[in-house]
Deep mutational scan, measured.
Amino acid sequence: MRVFPVYAPKLIVKHARIFLTGVIWVKDLGRLEFEKGRFLLPRKSLPKVKQAILELNELIEAQN
């Protein structure tokens, strides 16, 4: 598990694309899981977490 002390979308996306499957922890967002290079949306999450995951997945799609 990698810990990101700040929310840096480009760096987080780079990590997810390299490792494809895993878990990261982002300060103020908490634990985020990714599989096959995409972030998974938890069943229950705060609106800011949901927005961050959608933003990260959009960045991943834009890079493909």
Results as ranks from 00 to 15, higher is better:
I18E: 12
K36R: 09
L59C: 06
L46V: 12
V23C: 13
F4C: 06
I24M: 07
R17S: 11
Q51K: 12
V13G: 05
R17N: 09
R38N: 11
E33C: 14
K10F: 10
I12P: 01
H15P: 01
V6E: 12
M1W: 00
I53F: 03
K44N: 06
P9C: 03
R38M: 12
G30T: 02
L20M: 11
L41R: 11
L54A: 11
L41W: 07
V13S: 10
E35H: 12
G37R: 04
R38W: 10
N57Y: 02
A16K: 01
K48Q: 08
Q51F: 13
A8Q: 08
L20Y: 12
F19S: 10
L40A: 04
G37V: 06
K48E: 06
T21S: 13
W25G: 04
H15K: 01
K10Y: 12
Y7F: 05
L29F: 07
I53E: 00
L54Q: 06
G22T: 01
A52M: 05
V13A: 14
G22D: 02
E33Q: 14
T21V: 13
P47E: 04
R31K: 14
K50P: 03
L56C: 03
L11Y: 06
R2D: 15
P42G: 07
T21E: 11
P5H: 15
P47M: 10
R17E: 12
G37S: 07
V23A: 04
V13T: 08
S45T: 11
R17D: 07
F39N: 04
L54W: 09
G22Y: 03
K50A: 07
P42E: 05
V13R: 02
K10Q: 12
V49K: 12
L46C: 14
H15G: 01
I12Y: 01
D28R: 14
K10R: 09
A52I: 07
R17H: 10
I12T: 02
G37Y: 04
R38A: 09
E33M: 13
L46F: 12
L40R: 12
E33S: 14
G30Y: 03
F34A: 00
R31D: 04
G30P: 01
W25V: 05
A52G: 02
I18N: 12
V26L: 04
A8K: 06
V3N: 14
R2I: 15
A62Q: 14
T21H: 13
Q63D: 14
K10G: 14
E55K: 07
R43D: 07
R31C: 14
A62F: 08
F4M: 03
E33I: 14
V3L: 01
E61C: 10
G22Q: 01
G37C: 10
R43G: 08
L54P: 00
L54M: 11
R17W: 11
K27T: 15
K14N: 10
Q51M: 13
L56D: 00
L41N: 08
Q63F: 08
I60W: 11
K10H: 09
L46W: 14
P47K: 13
F34Y: 06
V3S: 13
I53C: 09
T21Q: 13
R2N: 14
E35R: 14
L29V: 12
V26Q: 01
F34I: 06
K48H: 08
K14P: 05
I12E: 01
L11Q: 10
A16N: 00
I12A: 01
V23I: 12
L41M: 08
G37P: 01
I12S: 03
K44M: 05
G37F: 05
K27A: 14
E55C: 06
K27Y: 15
Q63W: 12
H15Q: 02
G30F: 03
L59A: 09
L20C: 13
L56S: 00
Q63K: 09
G30R: 00
E33V: 13
H15C: 06
L40H: 07
K27W: 13
T21M: 07
H15L: 04
Q63A: 13
S45A: 10
N64I: 10
W25N: 04
L40V: 11
L56P: 03
F4Q: 00
F19C: 15
K36W: 11
N64V: 14
R31L: 05
F19K: 14
P5V: 13
P5C: 15
L41Q: 13
V3W: 14
R17K: 06
P42W: 06
A16Q: 02
L29S: 00
K27N: 15
E35K: 13
A62G: 09
V3Y: 15
P5R: 14
R43I: 07
L20Q: 10
R2V: 15
L20S: 09
V49F: 06
I12Q: 01
A62D: 10
